[in-house]
Design a protein around this nucleic acid. Structure first.
Lengths: 328, 328
DNA sequence: CACCAAAATGTTGACGTAAACATTCTGGTG
DNA sequence: CACCAGAATGTTTACGTCAACATTTTGGTG
């Protein structure tokens, strides 16, 4: 900056004013300074600016593997929302959901220049009591259990699972089977709970759920089990990827979809429309989750206090061709 | 920091030494300082540290939509590799691949605290001559055309397309049809070029490719076209998502896969194994691409100069059940 | 042309850290 | 016990920026 000032024959302060687009600078001086900037190859140093201002214009995101469809969509929408508010994103990946790794991620976040944190973690995986939460840093949590001292934004898992289950019941199926996500995931637990609640509420029997782990492979294995059981006419799968595996298993075993077995997924990933058959599923509003969480975080950043709050983003059912009334 | 120093009755410099884990600090003093840190709620200020050191420990990543499977996997592997080298990642999303948006992303990157940049952009979309490349900042480009003044890391698109095409020819198909990615994507162009080169090299006729845009929807539309043509016995699809759409179209039109039509994809996304039928496809080593690009960038950061270089990461064919010899 | 308000520009200092150098303490040696 | 090397700790300073305040310039008024 000093070089620019010398080159343009002005003071550093004037350079600063030009760099920040202040109005009270003479047109001639401004262009002279801009020329000097170009000539010297000057770019404002963000570290110094952040040091001076005490703000970074940067949001940290802590996330496990990005390889899950939902996480990725969420990240995408967070990135867009942050960019709309002129914030950038620092991504802190956590390899395994262990206590140690999460604590390390927080530590790293502190060393990083960050104004607030969005945590996308299936927090059931860690003992929230043990985690050393970043102190004095606004935090918003996505996809978490309750009783955290932070605002939480999440898809309305219960509503979604209810919609899926009731859709199948409406079609005339006597009950609905379930392929669940991993037991240590909050959203999986919520979906499973709501599925069984809905069945009970309608006075139906609740079959034992088949455990999956979100992957299409686990869906395939679950599908093989379900295909053996001729009682099964309707399956609610806790995500679309597992639904894909279920579909494959049913095809392999010659069980017609939706002729003999109806399948409903959860997520509405962009591919689901082109599954065979096109998948009826519960659409999550990932964009809404990302946007809301960024807004809440920015509120926390600006107003210091982040009052715990709970935002549930609604879902809706997308009817396609993988569901039909049971064969009579 | 001053508070901690006062609290512990030492100088700021000693606090700094403790914070950085230097060895030449008395055990008693160290623990006294650590206690004081905890009490005061001290955390090192990264802006100040960066200002002092001139480094940030942070890599910028410029990317278009994350909603594509490949981009996501690449980002994931970059994140892991960066984290292994103790760097974090700042994500700069670019909404549309326009000149203006890209330039703005670069500008923002400069304002951000970043030691180097990895650009994951189908650069054919922008006029590289017009872009104001970040000056004095190491850059590595993924998935780009040649003739850039920066190191490039990419999957060996040509090899992959050749493997796919030759696999189908080896099965006995007289020629191979192609569903291509969008014309303005380098990788799509490479795959298409290599597919036609391979056919020509084997003396086969080269059918007109059907244009897609990477989405499964576009694959479905392409599949409907191909299904009408009874000459079609083998299709090479430029990615797995479009292959999914092709499969759906073929099923809808009653064309058996692989009985009447064989299909090969590209990417090997984790779901492809559970398509119906399980998809034969070309596996990209996304992990390798991410790792190599981070390594090259760090080299550039450490040694100042980033000599243009070209790294091609090999692919290999994964044979599953969507391909078979043509019905005789 | 003296005067003044407003605009333009300059000066000073502080943000939190760590390197370089200076000083003090420790324990062992002759 | 004087002396010394090495360890532990302290002091000073600069990193690049911008807010606050000080000063100079500009252009318009009576």
């Amino acid at each position: 900056m000093a070089d620019v000032a010398r080159e343009a024959g002005v003071s550093g302060q004037t350079v600063s004013r030009v760099a920040n687009g202040r109005s009270n600078v003479d047109e001639g001086t401004r262009s002279r300074v801009l020329d000097a900037m170009r000539k010297v190859g000057y770019h404002p140093n963000n570290a110094a600016r952040a040091l001076r201002l005490g703000r970074f214009g940067n949001i940290g995101v802590i996330m496990f593997t990005l390889s899950s469809f939902g996480n990725m969509r969420t990240l995408d929408s967070i990135a867009m929302a942050a960019s709309d508010h002129n914030y950038s994103l620092t991504l802190i990946p956590v390899r395994r959901p262990s206590q140690k790794d999460v604590t390390r991620a927080f530590a790293r976040l502190h060393r990083q220049a960050v104004d607030g944190v969005i945590i996308v973690i299936e927090t059931a995986l860690i003992d929230t009591a043990e985690v050393h939460w970043p102190a004095g840093l606004p935090v918003v949590v996505i996809d978490a259990g309750a009783d955290l001292p932070h605002p939480i934004v999440d898809t309305d898992q219960s509503e979604g699972a209810r919609l899926a289950t009731e859709h199948l019941l409406d079609q005339g199926h006597s009950t609905v089977w379930h392929v669940s996500g991993p037991a240590n995931s909050y959203s999986a637990t919520r979906r499973r709970q709501s599925w069984s609640d809905t069945l009970r509420h309608h006075g139906r029997s609740v079959p034992a759920p088949v455990d999956g782990d979100w992957t299409s492979d686990s869906g395939y294995r679950a599908g093989l089990v379900l295909a053996e059981n001729s009682d099964v006419t309707a399956v609610f799968t806790a995500n679309d990827q597992m639904a894909l595996g279920v579909l494959r298993a049913l095809h392999e075993r010659g069980r017609a979809v939706p002729g003999q077995v109806s399948v409903v997924g959860f997520d509405d990933m962009s591919e689901s429309k082109n599954f065979w058959p096109p998948l009826t599923t519960v659409r999550q509003n990932f964009e809404g989750v990302g946007r809301r969480s960024v807004e809440m975080l920015l509120h926390g950043i600006r107003h210091g206090t982040s009052t715990p709050a709970n935002v549930l983003v609604p879902t809706h059912l997308v009817r396609r061709e993988s569901t039909a009334p049971p064969a009579s």
